[in-house]
Design a protein around this nucleic acid. Structure first.
Lengths: 197, 197
DNA sequence: TATTATAGTGACCGTTTGGTCACTTGTCAA
DNA sequence: TTGACAAGTGACCAAACGGTCACTATAATA
């Protein structure tokens, strides 16, 4: 990540927009967090909306880079145990990384106010992980690690419950332990049913 | 539903809060929608926050009445076909009723700004339907209609994917057909696996 | 050294917002 | 008939907001 003022503005804008929404965030707070005067912001961005759009550009680019390209695919699991470990590792990351937490909050609170947020939310909460696990499950079925079913359907019923619990954890962080336990249980149950012994 | 001014204010407040968020909604628009002057609102509620709290009281009471009490349980399915029909009927209702759509929007956009919204969101998106289907599945297992598994786990993996797709439909209403098709597919797949022939 | 572009400041502006207040109207009971 | 109360109006207020502008400091370049 860069550390220019222009980039730092977006960093703090993410915090404020995620915590207060677009309408609720104000440029005085943003400037204060950066140790700048409000008018300094206008040397880097033309308006509040301009900051918002630049932040969205960055979020969209980040998602495309990490979830859209084939090169960022995780290592294919060679056993159902490895599927469990891989999923839990991805989970720990997505549930603890402050920036991703803020991104999730922003997507949820602004999904109805901005079309680009709307599209990105669908990718983030549905299509992104679904696609990745479709590929993973296809491979695991080929390798005889999973029962042969429609890999898309399997990816859906695997990722959707996890996504639901991640959203719960984003909403109520104090339930993190409960969420982790339930996801572990769920994955083990899933493997019990679809894993090939 | 009542049709007093006090109640009508809440009706329109739901629309505005759901569409613009608490911060984004303003009392002039609200008054205009009601054909009232802004100051008239203050004859019924002490402040914007007071309106918000009254609306939330009503939402919480509504949810408790329709999802918390035993008397509002749906008729127990006597076959897996009836489970399919029941689920699709509940789905059509929850996906098309304007007030419930607005409620979902409000829960999603304000879940991080208000603790009561936070709690209600968890009930609405997770615990509520989960509890209902736990009871339904327990009964269906007793009746030999479903394989005997942990009914709570089954309710979770049944409702979570549906909830995910309902949220997609709330976000992108033009995908309603796709969502309905996917849910149908999912339910049939679920019944294929857990239904007793 | 003089010039120029960049980054930053603080005072200021117009608009929007939640909220108040004196006043009016209609209804119903004493 | 009158008095009291609830419901509604429009003008007004202070605060918060996004945005502008003249000005300063710094550092690189000609």
């Amino acid at each position: 990540m860069e550390n220019t003022t222009k980039s730092r503005i977006l960093d703090e804008a993410l915090v404020l927009f995620a915590e207060n929404g677009y309408k609720g965030a104000n440029l005085r707070d943003l400037a204060a967090r950066l140790g700048l005067s409000k008018s300094a912001l206008y040397k880097h961005y033309a308006s509040k909306e301009d900051i918002w759009n630049a932040l969205l550009d960055r979020m969209i680019a980040y998602h495309a880079e990490h979830f859209g390209s084939a090169e960022h695919l995780p290592q294919m699991p060679k056993s159902t145990e490895e599927l469990y470990v891989l999923t839990m590792k991805m989970l720990h990351f997505t549930i603890n990384d402050p920036r991703i937490i803020l991104t999730r909050k922003l997507l949820l609170t602004e999904q109805f106010h901005d079309e680009r947020v709307c599209k990105l939310a669908t990718k983030h909460f549905l299509i992104g992980t679904e696609n990745i696990f479709t590929i993973i499950f296809e491979k695991m079925m080929e390798d005889g690690l999973l029962k042969k079913e429609d890999p898309k359907m399997l990816a859906f019923i695997y990722t959707a419950p996890v996504t639901t619990l991640i959203q719960l954890c984003t909403r109520e962080p104090d339930k993190q332990e409960e969420v982790m336990r339930r996801i572990e249980e769920f994955i083990k149950y899933f493997i019990k049913i679809y894993g090939v012994k």
